[in-house]
């Protein structure tokens, strides 16, 4: 079972609304989103955690756990802010911000999907 944010970059218009929704929901401010939209010459990239769990095995304090739905969660009371998870993420979807000690990532809450005008992001559940 794996619940995650599935992305369709070909539909994305780079309005960045998803970033704003995410950052304001979790940090009450802009600039700390768990989803990142990048516009470059090759097109638009959408970066958000695909819940692959590569980070879980490198955490020295077992601050990362996996929910029954297959979502990787950060336990802030156990995290000691080493950011080995940030470096271990194969898709660079685990983030750190200078003003915020614990690292953060998409937890597939789906808040952003409701604001996407083109359907470029969707919560899906894979049965693996």
């Amino acid at each position: 079972m794996k619940k995650y944010l599935k992305t369709f970059p070909e539909l994305c218009i780079a309005c960045h609304t998803c970033e704003s929704v995410c950052s304001n929901l979790y940090f009450k401010q802009e600039g700390k989103s768990c989803i990142v939209i990048t516009e470059n010459t090759d097109g638009i990239e959408i970066n958000a955690c695909n819940q692959c769990q590569a980070c879980v095995k490198v955490c020295p304090t077992q601050a990362l756990s996996v929910t029954p739905q297959g979502v990787v969660m950060v336990n802030k009371s156990l995290c000691i802010h080493c950011y080995m998870c940030v470096a271990a993420c194969p898709t660079q979807s685990f983030f750190r911000h200078a003003e915020n000690l614990p690292p953060f990532k998409c937890i597939a809450c789906g808040a952003c999907t409701k604001s996407c005008p083109t359907g470029a992001i969707k919560i899906v559940q894979d049965k693996e």
């Binding site: 095995k57 490198v58 020295p60 304090t61 000691i80 080493c82 950011y83 080995m84 470096a87 271990a88």
Partner: peptide, 12 residues
């Protein structure tokens, strides 16, 4: 194999 075998936190 596959363990975070650092003798202090943050040693990757």
């Amino acid at each position: 194999q596959g363990m975070p075998d650092g003798c202090w936190f943050g040693c990757s």
